[in-house]
Computed example of a mutant assay.
Amino acid sequence: MARESEEYKNAIKDIASHSHQLESPFDRVRCVEWCRKLAGLSDEDLESCKLKNEYAQFLRIQARHKFLHGPFTSPPPDGQLSTLSECLGNLMAQQIPYLPRVGPLCPVIHHKSPDGRAYVSTKQIPGGGVFCYMAVSPDGLKCTIK
């Protein structure tokens, strides 16, 4: 979780240094609105850290290239953010009417032990079943999530 938080902070710093170069004042306002929305999300669990980081990295790329598109052309939603993949899938479905809308994606569960020596991840397999990954390191070494 620390790595995701650090990447998020670096992305926000980079966005701040490039957002003033956006040509449209509306884009600059949108950029600030999205940064505030992301800053308001919890840092307590891995999933929300990953969600913040996904959006921040995508916004970072756009701010560096001085052009906002996709979800950042409109204000952030008042409620909870969907995953970036779900959001982009729905934007594509709006542009291409014969594509089906994307619903909520199956959750992926991640858990890391407090001492960092064990890690478990599960994901539902389409058509039934569950994929489970577990890593345990010997004393003195810590598992790294990649």
Rank of each mutant, 00 (worst) to 15 (best):
N53I: 00
I145F: 05
Q124Y: 10
D78T: 15
S48I: 10
D45R: 14
Q94H: 13
K123F: 03
T83V: 01
G116C: 03
F67R: 15
G128D: 01
P138T: 10
A16C: 03
L84E: 14
K50F: 04
K142H: 06
H65L: 03
R3M: 05
S74T: 14
D78K: 14
D139L: 11
G140D: 02
S137Q: 12
S82D: 07
G127L: 02
G116L: 01
G70H: 05
V120S: 13
C143I: 15
Q62T: 08
A135S: 15
G127E: 00
G116A: 09
S17Y: 08
F72G: 10
L41I: 14
A2I: 03
L51K: 07
F131N: 12
K9A: 15
V136T: 14
Q124L: 12
C35I: 12
F26H: 12
S113V: 05
E86V: 05
C143M: 14
Q80W: 01
T122I: 05
P76L: 02
E23F: 03
C35Q: 12
L105S: 12
L22W: 08
P77T: 09
M1D: 03
R30T: 05
P107R: 05
F131T: 07
L141P: 02
H18V: 01
L38I: 01
A11Y: 01
L46Q: 10
Y98L: 09
S121K: 15
E54I: 00
D78C: 08
I15W: 06
V136R: 13
H18F: 01
Y133T: 07
A11K: 01
C143P: 13
G40V: 04
A39V: 00
D27Y: 02
S24H: 11
W34Y: 05
E44C: 04
E47Y: 03
K9N: 13
E4S: 07
E47W: 00
T122S: 04
S42E: 04
K142L: 12
L46Y: 13
S48K: 13
A63V: 06
F26C: 04
L99S: 06
R60L: 04
T144D: 05
Y133H: 11
P77I: 11
C143L: 09
V32F: 03
E6N: 06
L59Y: 07
G40R: 09
R28F: 00
A2R: 09
L88C: 13
R30D: 05
D43T: 08
Q80F: 03
R28C: 03
K146F: 00
I145K: 12
H18K: 04
V29C: 09
T122H: 02
